[in-house]
Design a protein around this nucleic acid. Structure first.
Lengths: 188, 188
DNA sequence: CGACTATACGGAGGCCGCCTCCGATTTGTC
DNA sequence: GACAAATCGGAGGCGGCCTCCGTATAGTCG
């Protein structure tokens, strides 16, 4: 796969950076459905320029988030050495959940992407998916995780908790929900 | 509280019914964010007429769903007599979850409503909330449900599962997720 | 330093959805 | 049948999405 790309012209590169910066701001303020026209306006750029650099909203989101996602995939690799498989998995899931709760609306986008190979986010997401699947295997093998649960179920569940934490007034919501789900709702 | 209302004029009543019917159809086809203009168009009615009868989208959703929600509240009351408190709770939650997964986007709307007293759905939702809170108390008292979980957490969690089941290809998703969460993810 | 071309810009314009407002129409009544 | 109250309907303003193409400019070459 050749990722070779001609160097951008100076003005193009400048606009690209400005757009990314405003996108970050806008997503943080209004969630992942923020107005693209406003992002362009704030970046001092025409709407056409935004669409040239980022043909779809997803492409923009992907660029804003890629670094974090790559970090999350790396974290999965490192956690493979952890002495406690179940704790490692749980820790990774919490981290992932926090990433996906970063912007309002992101969990939904993420879940949809997991089924859509054509999405620009697909590659990043599946790098993580592969990473975590090893963590899951290890947790099952260690006897810490029930054997009948699949990676995909786990990821959907996690994004659901992420989604839920958006709609909770308290901010320590996600960790609590993950604990709840790992331990189960039955009395011990 | 006087719910007395003058009888509607014949044309008004007719349009009201047509709108409800088309709304049901549209919500089923396109989710709860379906275009209101299209609903009006299909009902053979001006957009102004739609807004006169249903000032907000929520008002329309509420009218479409009220009967089901009332039924759900009644179900909670009946289940209070069940000999198995935990099973009763679980059964109610599954039923509720299926209601809220009925239309795409509904779980989100529901969760938001639970915090918004001004919403027209608030009353229906809290009737159910009160109903289920007794089920929860009973389940805790019977020792089946962990004592540190709140009704609100339970409802948010449930709607999250409902939300997740929208994004799952399989259709038996919700029940499976509820089981998973009740039992917990740890190996037994 | 110009001139030339590939590259990039920007916003007008078409489409759609939301919601409000008010002149036109219809219903029920006396 | 006439009148008032109730109801209708859609034009119009707003904002968002996205495409298209005439215009501007950066980089290059003589």
């Amino acid at each position: 796969m050749d990722t070779e790309k001609k160097p951008l012209r100076a003005d193009a590169r400048r606009n690209y950076e400005r757009l990314l910066e405003e996108a970050r701001r806008a997503f943080a303020a209004h969630g992942v459905e923020a107005s693209l026209e406003e992002i362009a306006r704030r970046a001092g750029v025409g709407i056409g320029t935004l669409y040239r650099h980022f043909p779809t909203r997803e492409a923009l989101v992907e660029t804003v988030l890629r670094d974090r996602f790559d970090g999350q995939a790396a974290a999965a690799r490192e956690l493979l050495d952890s002495p406690e498989p179940l704790a490692a998995l749980k820790s990774w899931l919490t981290g992932m959940g926090e990433q996906s709760a970063r912007y309002r609306g992101l969990p939904e986008l993420m879940v949809d992407v997991l089924d859509d190979e054509t999405s620009p986010l697909y590659a990043s997401c599946h790098a993580m998916r592969d990473g975590v699947s090893h963590l899951v295997e290890r947790a099952k093998a260690s006897g810490g995780l029930r054997a009948d649960v699949t990676v995909d179920e786990l990821l959907v569940l996690l994004h659901a908790l992420s989604w839920a934490s958006e709609h909770l007034s308290g901010d320590k919501g996600l960790e609590r929900l993950v604990d709840l789900v790992f331990a189960g709702l039955r009395a011990s």
